[in-house]
Design a protein around this nucleic acid. Sequence first.
RNA 1: CGGGGCGUAGCGCAGUCUGGUAGCGCGCUUGGUUCGGGACCAAGAAGUCGGAGGUUCAAAUCCUCUCGCCCCGACCA
Length: 577
Amino acid sequence: MRYSRAFIPTLKEKPADAEVVSHVFMVRGGFIRQLAAGIYNFLPLGWRVVRKIEEIVREEMDRAGAQEVLMPGAVPAELWIESGRWKVYGPELLRFKDRKGAEFCIGPTHEEVIVEMVRRDTASYRELPKNLYQIQSKFRDEKRPRAGLMRGREFIMKDAYSFDRDESGALRAYDSMYEAYGRIFRRCGLDFRAVEADTGAIGGSRSHEFQVLAESGEDAIVSCDNCDYAANVEQAEYARPTEPSVTGGGALETVDTPAQKTIEQVTAFLKVPAKQLIKTLVYVADGQPVAALVRGDRALNEVALKKAIGAQQIYLARDAEVKEATGVDPGFVGPVGLKIPVYADWELEGATGAIAGAGEAGKHVKNVDLARDVVVTKLAGLRLAEAGDLCPRCKKGHFRPFKGIEVGHVFFLGTKYSAPMHCEFLDEDGSKKPMVMGCYGIGITRIAAAAIEQNHDTNGIVWPMSIAPYEVEIIALQNDAEVRKAAESLYAELTARGIEVLYDDRDERPGAKFKDADLIGVPLRVAIGARSLKEGKLELKWRKDKDPTLIHAAGAPEEVAGLVAAEKQRLRAKADA
RNA sequence: CGGGGCGUAGCGCAGUCUGGUAGCGCGCUUGGUUCGGGACCAAGAAGUCGGAGGUUCAAAUCCUCUCGCCCCGACCA
């Protein structure tokens, strides 16, 4: 591509509405432009990156035995009503009516549609297993879209769905997708971890997230420094303590804490460490109030609490709800004598001498003995995992914390959709059975953002070769005839060899071309200038390196093409590692 | 949904408190000089000041309503 004819509107200054690195560089580099909150145009450069990522995904999905399909964006409400999600899915689901008044939504995910597709034309176990995928725009009306492509409302996603006759087949499909995902992200040059995850609104019983490690990530993950256990903190287990971590003794004693409501205030006032306290949180679980207890220095894991209760929905009770359920304002709620179900973190098992709210305004109680003084409905691992926790798997290593960007997610669904929607087949024994499903998503556009978060410097993007908009950028430094001729010739020869070349033939000063090249981030740069050309040399520089090297102009096409091929091969080989 | 911020030329911003002829930098156009890390000089083009209503002799500026965007949090694959 000749730069002079390309549509690559770069910006010198940081756009006012971008904060996160990938967002800033994608706008500055002319990859994307915003159309509305969380909704973007892809300019030529951005679209090339998306297509590169899509191609890698297609190759690996096909290789894993999946077949590509395309489902519509507009989905009739009936399917969603049938699955039960029309009511459950909140305002994130964009709904509208057609001219006849029939209700539709724009698909935020496509379990319903794929189930309809498969059940209509699959009758026998002989036709299973099947694995179908699509790459298509999704729409989720996020409350707060942010950071450019990191969390958009409209975004491009690869979603795949597997259908098997039994659980063991479905688990094989799951494993094969898990494997394919690893290959995909390695080929994209990403540093990632596969972590155990919560199944969330999609539902199901087994799930892994693929998290790209980056400071700007929204997800907190922990991974063992000894074994390969890694998990989203929402899902992370921690070893059940073998002995009480809160100790002391004596009879219950009420103390005045007139204005001390928070853990910090109480610990400062009574001069005790936070771990000596019991934090009592009131939640509303499916309409019923419950209390959750964790040690004063810990944070509650809401996902774990929801599971322990077996509730569909939980939320932290509002002040008025706390008062109604416990008779006291937040800050003085305590577990002793509570009339509502009490769920205690198992770290509090056997706790003695603990301090907690007294259930009476302006007072706390000392020497709480959990076994003696509190009616515990259930003990469970309720706190959020933390850095330094003992690994629950190997029991040797400890957790290290990471921030991650979720670029992929695999779910084992079982019959969550196939049963209610009657996606069934006739098995060998003549019985009708629901298919066992899995679903597998990859955020295509989010990969582009994640790749930049991981590969950039102060001047711009440093694309991995496999997903770069172009593989080589040629810069003609001057406008004189010799330089032009050499640049034109290299451009023609590389293009003929199938290399994707951006040729900066603009009538700009060298500085401007270098700046734009760094910003755009094409991995390999060839600068052609009068000075070195006199000696028959061209200047070669990797975007990731600081310094250039000189190569002979005569053999340049072969040499550059060879370097590109080698780098592509290196990333491909990583997939097999 | 709660809190905060911002809408003025294509982009980045000043001007708003204290009403009185709409400005600066970049970019763009033309001419000239330049040419290895975002050149310089000169001359230009370009703005319903987010929108509606109101107050006033007069509104970017004051008042009311409204739309949009960003950030933090809550929430969420």
